[in-house]
């Protein structure tokens, strides 16, 4: 699949802006959401090709965001990569049960994250 639009969801400003800058440099269109509700809204309005989703978020957490997106016909096909500092196995399970396509544990280097994205591009 072709990936052009990436939605980055993280309430940690240094992280989200770094990711935005790096992806943009590589030619991707990047949208940033800083809370769960905003993430859902943007997922519907911008129709990203892939979503990088933090779990601990204000207003609505990543688990809930993922559940909602996966429940809707129009958004359920968008791959959701959870990127979280929560690394306990039950937490990982919770994320995957909510429908996440991949659960990544912070910390991760940018090349690793890019690698995950590329993996989807090759599919």
């Amino acid at each position: 699949m072709e990936i052009q639009k990436i939605l980055v969801v993280d309430d940690d400003k240094p992280i989200s802006s770094y990711l935005q800058r790096k992806f943009a440099k590589l030619g991707y269109t990047v949208y940033v959401a800083e809370d769960g509700e905003e993430a859902v809204k943007q997922a519907f309005s911008n129709r990203p090709d892939i979503i990088l989703l933090d779990v601990k978020l204000p207003k609505m957490n990543g688990i809930e965001v993922c559940k909602q997106l996966k429940a809707d016909e129009t958004t359920k096909s968008i791959p959701v990569l959870m990127l979280s500092a929560k690394a306990q196995s039950f937490e990982i399970n919770e994320g995957l049960e909510a429908g996440a396509d991949k659960y990544l544990c912070k910390p991760m280097s940018f090349p690793d994250i890019l690698g995950e994205i590329r993996a989807y591009e090759r599919k």
Binding site: D12, I15, Y18, A85, C105, K106, P107, M108, F110
Partner: peptide, 9 residues
């Protein structure tokens, strides 16, 4: 983990 992520970036 969160802080580390920031450092790495």
């Amino acid at each position: 983990r969160r802080l580390l992520q920031e450092y790495i970036f």
